[in-house]
């Protein structure tokens, strides 16, 4: 269970205040909102990449508000995938385990397992510059999942992809979330994507996060 309580974030003149919402364990939460509404700011704060001015973040009951990003057990996939340009895909995926001290055998096993699930076995020996947009996102996803995080934060992972690639990756995201049993917080401004993937829907509007009921659309709220 991820619980965000009365969160206060400031960025110059921009402010998000009194942000509160809860994501049950193993849920696929969708956070929607207009461009510039602060979705990425909120996601990065949960990942520990931005300082929090007030409020709390709890993960399975443990407060992680001031916990360094490296110790939060949160996998993060940024919008542009941000792959490491000088690492081949295999090492890229194993990176999280490498810095956490896993053995070479464990790393190789996990990389093969994720590569098979995400259908990227054929590109394990390539550098990021030789990957397509869809492949890059799959690699970023595998990298974020490698160390079995408690929460997976996805920042518009499908926004830059063409129709077919987007559809394939949407199915893959759903499949991998279930097979890995990981809680997901997925940011998007695509309603169809949100409906296809999400079990829980939230909308960030006017500096407030509201839970949205039903799969019809992201407008009506109950919170």
């Amino acid at each position: 269970m991820i619980s965000v309580q009365q969160l206060l974030l400031r960025q110059g003149d921009f402010e998000l205040s009194q942000i509160s919402f809860e994501i049950p364990s193993n849920a696929y939460a969708i956070l929607m909102g207009a461009t510039g509404s602060g979705k990425t700011t909120l996601l990065e704060s949960i990942c520990g990449l931005r300082a929090i001015a007030g409020g709390k973040i709890l993960m399975d009951g443990d407060e992680i508000t001031r916990t360094p990003p490296a110790q939060r057990q949160i996998g993060y996939v940024p919008q542009d995938s941000s792959l490491f340009p000088t690492m081949k895909v295999h090492r890229q995926i194993a990176f999280g385990m490498e810095v956490r001290g896993f053995s070479q055998t464990e790393r190789n096993q996990r990389v093969e397992e994720l590569a098979s699930s995400l259908e990227i076995t054929a590109i394990l020996d390539r550098y990021p510059r030789r990957l397509s947009g869809g492949e890059r996102q799959r690699v970023a996803l595998a990298r974020a999942l490698s160390f079995r995080p408690r929460l997976l934060c996805l920042d518009e992972p499908l926004s830059a992809l063409d129709g077919d690639t987007r559809n394939n990756l949407t199915k893959l995201l759903k499949k991998i979330q279930q097979s890995e049993s990981v809680t997901v917080l997925h940011i998007t401004h695509n309603l169809e994507e949100g409906i296809q993937l999400g079990t829980d829907h939230f909308r960030l509007e006017k500096g407030q996060v509201r839970a949205v009921v039903g799969k019809d659309q992201g407008g009506k709220n109950t919170a």
């Binding site: 360094p68 110790q71 941000s82 340009p85 999280g96 810095v99």
Partner: peptide, 15 residues
Amino acid sequence: IDDRPERVAITLGAS
């Protein structure tokens, strides 16, 4: 050099 990959590395557990 974009610093975002470094920030991602930190979320992956890197110092």
